[in-house]
């Protein structure tokens, strides 16, 4: 049986302490800049906060993984290099990287640093994963959410590194790190300027009948009826009219969250080393509830007990959840 480490999100120092106290095996976080893919206003860590956070986590036996998982613009790599220097200086346990240049720099400049391959790299085949392992010394890959469990089991036999899979949170299926929908609409980087929906471009409009429209850069991307659950204002989860669907429908993806609580034993059996909970942009309340629930579930599985997970549907996007491709590629 794999260790099934629980990898938990932290957008603020208080959230990191919450995750550690709730039983995270490792916490992932990022700096307050474009070096990570959750560059939200008011979120993330200053260098001093990261130093204190690493000390707090290590005191509790929890690892800290630093996300440097964006793609630097050509020739503008200083920010990423300095972030790597700070991470090494403060003793983070691994860097989560996507860009080959960043990976190569860290491998040669900080040869003792451990590298994890971010989902942003979208490496989903044994050949792609092996390339990162052989050329950059990657020790773990975070798999995109597009593979079935049998496919994960097969990949595990063909790669020389550990596997981490998402088990809860955002159900993004795009080729992450290379999505240009936000750039197209807002002119801002999907990667570096606040992920899919830069808050400065988001607007919610309440209509007189109680409906709510969500807009990005002036474009209405969804309209929720008075009794309808809402989702995030992301373009790929918007509702659009098409020639044969004039009423509007979810053309790309739906507002729904991943929840693999029932598949944990199968994932462990398939050789998954680490379970990742998405949501650095979420609150301490989310971190506390989700980490606590999965901590108990993983501990129960390790001890051979039946799991009885608390209901997390209230925390899911649109209050809907799915096992996605992990269960079947026909999940929609």
């Amino acid at each position: 049986m794999s260790l099934a480490e629980l990898i938990c999100p932290a957008g603020t120092p208080a959230a990191l302490r919450t995750a550690v106290d709730a039983g995270a095996d490792a916490v992932y976080c990022g700096f307050q800049d474009a070096t990570n893919a959750r560059n939200f206003p008011g979120l993330n860590f200053t260098p001093d906060e990261l130093a204190a956070a690493v000390a707090y986590a290590h005191h509790a036996g929890t690892k800290v993984l630093l996300a440097l998982n964006t793609y630097p613009p050509a020739g503008k790599v200083d920010l990423w290099r300095h972030a790597a220097y700070l991470g090494v200086r403060y003793g983070v346990d691994a860097f989560i990287v996507a860009d080959m240049g960043v990976a190569d720099y860290i491998r040669h400049t900080h040869p003792l640093a451990r590298l994890h391959l971010s989902v942003q790299a979208a490496a989903s085949s044994p050949e792609a994963i092996r390339y990162y392992c052989e050329n950059f010394g990657v020790k773990r890959v975070v798999l995109p959410r597009i593979l079935t469990i049998p496919e994960i089991r097969q990949i595990r036999t063909e790669i020389p590194c550990e596997i981490e899979t998402f088990i809860f949170g955002n159900h993004g299926l795009m080729v992450e790190g290379r999505c240009s929908l936000t750039n197209y609409l807002t002119g801002q980087s999907t990667n570096m300027d606040g992920v899919c929906s830069p808050a400065s471009d988001v607007q919610y409009v309440r209509d007189t009948d109680g409906s709510m429209s969500s807009r990005l850069a002036g474009f209405t991307i969804d309209r929720f009826g008075p009794e309808e659950m809402a989702g995030y204002p992301t373009i790929c989860k918007g509702r659009y009219a098409a020639p044969n669907r004039p009423e509007g429908y979810y053309a790309f993806e739906e507002p729904i969250s991943l929840n693999l609580s029932r598949l944990l034993p199968e994932l462990i059996d398939a050789g998954v080393h680490a379970f990742k909970i998405e949501g650095r942009q979420r609150s301490k309340s989310y971190v506390r509830n989700v980490v606590t629930a999965f901590r108990h579930a993983v501990d129960d599985i390790r001890a051979g007990r039946a799991t009885n997970m608390s209901d997390l549907v209230a925390l899911t996007e649109g209050q809907k959840q799915t096992q996605g491709a992990f269960e079947t590629k026909k999940w929609r």
Binding site: A199, S200, V202, Y204, R206, P226
Partner: peptide, 18 residues
């Protein structure tokens, strides 16, 4: 959780989202 309250429509936000 603020996002959950937003999903359930218990929380409304208008104006400057940032």
């Amino acid at each position: 959780d603020g996002d959950a309250a937003f999903f359930s429509r218990d929380l409304e936000i208008t104006g400057d989202t940032e």
